[in-house]
Write a protein that binds this DNA or RNA. Structure first.
Lengths: 397, 397
DNA sequence: GCATTTAGTCCATATCCTGAACTAATTGTG
DNA sequence: CACAATTAGTTCAGGATATGGACTAAATGC
């Protein structure tokens, strides 16, 4: 008798039963997503774009209008035959996402609306290294309160909040943020009740999401956040790649010199030690980021050599990344974006020398990338599943 | 006036409209998947497991029975109160997948049924290096014909075929298989008409899928296929990770020594050059795999040192991989599985030395992994979307 | 033998998409 | 300026599918 063997199948997309409500929810998301992504569309354009029938679109749009997520847009005066379509546009007052960020030398808050427009931003410079986490979080709570007040003033319903931290996170806890000196710090900000509550996310990951939404890159890319540490955000098929324990993308700890100097991560010879901001500053003799850029701009040989060396190491690391992940493109962000004029060539040369040539682009988002990504991640949840948003909004009301 | 910014949202799961047929299809897959994964289940167990109601399960199972994909199973004699459930089991005669493999020194074919049981296997040893591709493909066609004959004999309806190749692939074409010496070779085997036709896939990727189904590892792991080259198969959330151009997982070309020797990939200092089978053989002085293993088993210092060195390099590469992808586990396959007794410790030491410690397990699938994965990938498509399978089966009939 | 319990089927109902008929608003043309 | 042509959008009947409850079936336990 043959021993029956049972196999383990993928469950992607098989997460649960599909009922009528799920069908409706999925189609609502399809319509809302189309409008959010493409901009105002007529119902007839939505029919063509989604593959649903006119009748279905009618009903779906009706629901979204009733929910206040979309509204009537300005009709573009097309000189075409036939009845002009009435335009469906994202309702900017429909929902807002609160982005928060704790970083080494500042705290930040940002509110974006359903259309992706920034409705409020506030940043406070402050060295948070080795301050008691509770103290930092109290400051952050004040920042958040000011932001939610701004939402109220503008009549924006808050859908949820997302906090960007320079480290690894788990549900409601900052696991480890070396540069802040935080270990297992629970985060529980006193925010007003909202549909999605507060989530935590790695700063580099959120910067990558912001980059995705800004549309600089494609749907498959790796975003390098160069700061004191070097973080990486991996976007796969338009979705953040987190890995099994939400620790994926630790580009800074790719091993480039097996017998190199010890790193804070417990390893040795990590990219971060060879191409991180501290390493560049030490090699160039510049005191800080601004001085470094100035010296590069002035063409000072020492600074240029230090930056080129970092670029070379970065390129080598990215060659390994490309071989492993096969991204469509690599985005240089953070310090590397600012240093791109003097670093880009070294990166590309190193990539070519190791047999790969992904498209390399420079981020246009500044240090705001992470908060922006945080706020955007909330708005994205609304657009990605409007039915869930509406449901939890009702529940909490 | 604020400039309206339109954002790029993820489209995951938003691929198309959800109609009634899609709902049905998804639920059919849910039920079939549950039975395939867990083994025979009663309808009542299916209700609990899927979240659908009794009535729905009744109907869905009815359809699957009518389609011949599931059937009545032996009821397990439970001594419990109440009417015993009638057991729904995978119909082993429901569909079969044909796996094929072209490799450097052999050709292989395998047929597995819906239950995952191997129903036919045949391997022909032959050095295919630098033979004209057409000749090799003609041999492969003969192998495939014998396999489909075996299907007919056993009354197995062929759902499709998948060919494993040691290189990169695109639709219907082997892009580049360095160790075979193939470049842009179109593959068009004369197979009988089937629902899914013939697909091509990288050998290492398929080996990883086979590993997934064997259940050795979890749903997030990296499978290392060590042969002459070193391939990697990345499984994320139970799904093969392909990357933007289906070239992801090229673990063999992770850069370990930036100024190292040139590699066939165009780069230098790649893992493959330091820990591939050729490198180990050269360092140990053994003539082939068998001799190497024998010398290791005999405790010969030279062989052990060569293997340990490879293990150390492999460990360093896997440290980078872990930092980037954060897999739950790493699976050593191919030669590395055979050499694990002498190589495993070096790998784990290197990983620990670089600050990470993923679970490392050794594959129990032999060289059969890739063909098995190929055959399994076809069966998986049937289970993953039975409605699509039935539809294309009708169309071709 | 009969109550109890669990499994499975059947049917009326609700939800949601579709398709066709219908209404609405615009351009072009005689 | 009337009217055909064209495109947009709504409404309603019909169909597919899931749900919930009533009903039937088959076992255990007293």
């Amino acid at each position: 008798m043959l021993a029956q063997m049972f196999m383990s199948w993928s469950n992607r997309g098989m997460s649960g039963p599909v009922q009528h409500s799920a069908m409706r929810g999925s189609n609502l998301a399809l319509v809302l997503g189309a409008v959010a992504e493409t901009g105002p569309l007529t119902r007839s354009q939505l029919t063509a774009r989604t593959g649903l029938t006119k009748s279905s679109i009618s009903g779906l749009v009706g629901d979204l209008v009733a929910a206040g997520l979309v509204g009537e847009g300005q009709p573009a005066p097309t000189r075409e035959r036939g009845r002009p379509g009435s335009v469906v546009a994202i309702e900017r007052q429909g929902a807002a996402g609160l982005g928060l960020e704790v970083n080494v030398d500042y705290l930040a808050a940002m509110v974006t609306d359903l259309g992706g427009t920034v409705r409020y931003r506030h940043t406070v410079a402050h060295d948070n290294r080795d301050r008691p986490p509770a103290e930092v979080l109290a400051d952050l709570a004040r920042l958040a309160a000011a932001a939610t007040d701004a939402c109220d003033e503008q009549g924006l319903p808050l859908a949820g909040a997302c906090l960007a931290v320079p480290g690894t996170v788990a549900a409601g806890v900052v696991r480890r943020a070396p540069n802040l000196g935080w270990d297992d710090v629970p985060v529980d900000l006193p925010l007003p009740r909202s549909a999605f509550g507060l989530t935590l996310e790695n700063e580099a990951d959120l910067a990558a999401l912001a980059e995705l939404r800004a549309g600089t890159a494609s749907r498959d890319f790796v975003h390098v956040s160069g700061e004191i540490g070097i973080g990486g955000g991996i976007i796969v098929d338009g979705e953040l790649f987190r890995g099994a324990h939400a620790r994926a993308g630790e580009l800074g700890h790719v091993v480039l010199d097996p017998d190199g100097p010890a790193c804070s991560c417990g390893g040795r010879g990590c990219l971060e030690r060879l191409a991180g901001l501290d390493a560049i500053l030490a090699a160039s003799g510049a005191a800080d980021r601004a001085e470094l850029e100035a010296r590069c701009a002035a063409g000072e040989a020492g600074a240029l050599a230090a930056v080129a060396s970092a670029g070379r190491w970065l390129g080598i690391a990215l060659a390994s990344v490309t071989n492993l992940l096969d991204p469509e493109c690599v985005v240089l962000g953070g310090v590397f974006a600012a240093l791109a004029p003097w670093l880009g060539d070294a990166v590309e040369e190193a990539l070519a020398r190791h047999g790969v040539q992904p498209r390399v682009v420079v981020s246009e988002l500044g240090t705001e990338a992470a908060v922006r990504g945080a706020a955007g991640s909330v708005v994205r949840r609304v657009v990605g599943d409007p039915a869930a948003y509406l449901l939890s909004r009702e529940d909490s009301a």
